[in-house]
Nucleic acid binder design. Structure first.
Lengths: 183, 183
DNA sequence: ACCTGAACACCGTTCAAGT
DNA sequence: ACCTGAACACCGTTCAAGT
């Protein structure tokens, strides 16, 4: 009845509704209509399941817009952030999943390919794209951590005002730095 | 017998020796020579204890070197990374602790102050320093995740070669970007 | 092929009770 | 002031057994 992608889809739904702490193997199993031990027939462990959830999130990223590399990369970072913001605690989950080495979808792929096509070396393109992914994930992780604190009532609801300009500043920094490294 | 800082010190020792997953309240209590429930007399919860551990790690950062802002900031990022690399899983712990809002030592403070003294606006200095802290934490978290996989035997021991140049590339990116934002 | 039942070895946290 | 004992409500994971 429940296949791999169906289980990952329920886990993602649970993530959206209850946050990362709500995604336990037992809760996912409940959502699927099965016992927790059944999930281990489809996934070897929880890390593998969360990697599949990360893949599903990253797969929602729109393709790079047709434009000069500067605005294409800027728009890509903005869309990456926007996509993460549609899923509760997604930045923390994706960071951990990427670190686990169990993911199959790489958020840096399109930006890396673009930079390389624009003349940067393979390594420079990879490192720049990796730095951008790190910045977006780190920034959104902080935003979502604050949202968590707001939901828990430990922070007032108006502590979000500076997120947008801080993000734009980081994007500008990375773009200017990237431009500066070109031969 | 065991005070707050002694408990945090044992937790840090445990982190170094067993990694973040080895730092449970029961294990920390064992190391201190007490029962787990006793820790709750000194710390309200585990997050507060881990924040104290994060503070202890960040306090080990050397002061900014006397130099032009460019090399001062570059050396600061390198020392930040070097300090994190002396404590197992520290990047993940510090990231989570900073996000929890329970820390009292801010790794970005010295760089932010320097940039402001060098003429950047308060917000630009804060955002640039934040982007740098994010990059270092994200980069080292990935390094330490890979070290974890190597220890677990899922990765061969020679997969570390590209860490250093990738870090240097990110540093160069952020410095060039920062220089570019100055009026 | 897919799932259940039951267990194992853990967690963080609370709280009455001790000294 | 500081700690223990004992419990509560969870975890991820394994594995024999069912169908």
């Amino acid at each position: 009845m429940a296949d791999r992608t169906g289980i990952a889809a329920q886990a993602l739904r649970l993530l959206d509704e209850r946050g990362l702490s709500g995604v336990s193997m037992r809760h996912v199993a409940d959502a699927v209509g099965v016992k927790a031990s059944a999930i281990y027939w489809h996934y070897p462990n929880k890390a593998a399941l969360l990697a599949a959830v990360s893949d599903a999130i990253i797969a929602q990223l729109p393709p790079l817009p047709e434009a000069g590399w500067g605005i294409a990369v800027r728009v890509w970072m903005e869309q990456f952030r926007a996509t993460l913001l549609t899923h509760t605690d997604s930045a923390e989950l994706v960071s951990a999943a990427l670190a686990s080495g169990l993911t199959t979808v790489d958020p840096a792929a399109s930006a890396r390919a673009l930079l390389q096509a624009e003349g940067w070396s393979e390594l420079d393109a990879a490192w720049s794209a990796a730095a951008m992914v790190r910045f977006v994930l780190g920034h959104v992780a902080e935003e979502q951590a604050r949202q968590r604190l707001i939901v828990e009532g430990v922070l007032p609801a108006d502590a979000v005002a500076l997120d947008e300009p801080a993000f734009n500043h980081g994007v500008r920094l990375l773009l200017a730095g990237t431009a500066n490294v070109l031969p």
